[in-house]
Amino acid sequence: MEYLYTIIILVGLYVVLASSFNLVIGYAGLISIAHPVFYAIGAYGSALLARDFGWPAPLAMLAGALLAVAASILLALPSLRVSGDYLLIASIGFQLGLLEIIKNVSWTGGAGGLTNIPAAFAPSTPHWVYAVIVVVVAALSVLAVRAVAHGAYGRAMSALRDDELAFSMLGRNAVAMKVGSFALGCGLAGFAGALYAHQFRYLAPDQFEILQSSAILTMVVVGGLRTTWGPVVGAVMLQALPQAITFMNLPPSLLGPLQGLLFTGLVLVFMFIRPQGLIPAADVWTGAKEAHDVGRR
């Protein structure tokens, strides 16, 4: 039972990660691989605030998410000012650079990891409570991304992806819109990180490496870019698949690379054989009222 809750929590967190990454890379069309690092910022931020400054867990979690928002704006503003291409390069540098810092300073626990993170609830609380909370957060994230993508904001994001010049000439602020959607996506990832930290109570920098980036990217690309349910399907499927490999009792030195191979290989296969993913997106943007049939065609 315990194991089942853990799986539910992990799947739920990946649903949040994949949906929010879909907002960034799919709807906003911003290429970043640093999504796991915002997950890390939320996790470390919340964990340290709760552990070393005694903040209550819910407050620390919110602060962790806001920290991720702030960091994402810091990353996006200078790189997006120039052109979208630079965001990807900046994101690679940001991810590797920040992990380098986490590994090298003592107050994050260094490469050995951060331990003794306070739990969110007293030990007497039944374990299913946290699983329910995570599932609710996951559902809310999916709905929030969907609402944003199929509302007035989503219409504008769609236009921006089509033609940035024409978009700007209509009086829309393209940079603000890109930074805004990036910050929202990264904030959700940060919140997921905070939820992770107070449940598993241990964080290590390798959990947020590029392997994670490929995992999340795979979930979105395989599930279906720019669809509500694609990333959810991708997250559930790809979280279950590596679990199956875990059962094969491989040594960890093989397990990581094998998972990585699986993720990257799947992205390649889908990219060339079924670029639209399992759930293809509609060609034309639809507003909220018509949104229920998006992705089912």
Binding site: G29, G84, L217, L254, G260, V267, M271, P275
Partner: peptide, 21 residues
């Protein structure tokens, strides 16, 4: 352009994982 980016990056990661194995 995004697919070209993803493609090149994923190839590098794929090769790194194969090398690890």
């Amino acid at each position: 352009q995004m697919f070209v980016f993803i493609f090149t990056l994923i190839i590098s990661e794929l090769v790194a994982y194969i090398a690890m194995l």
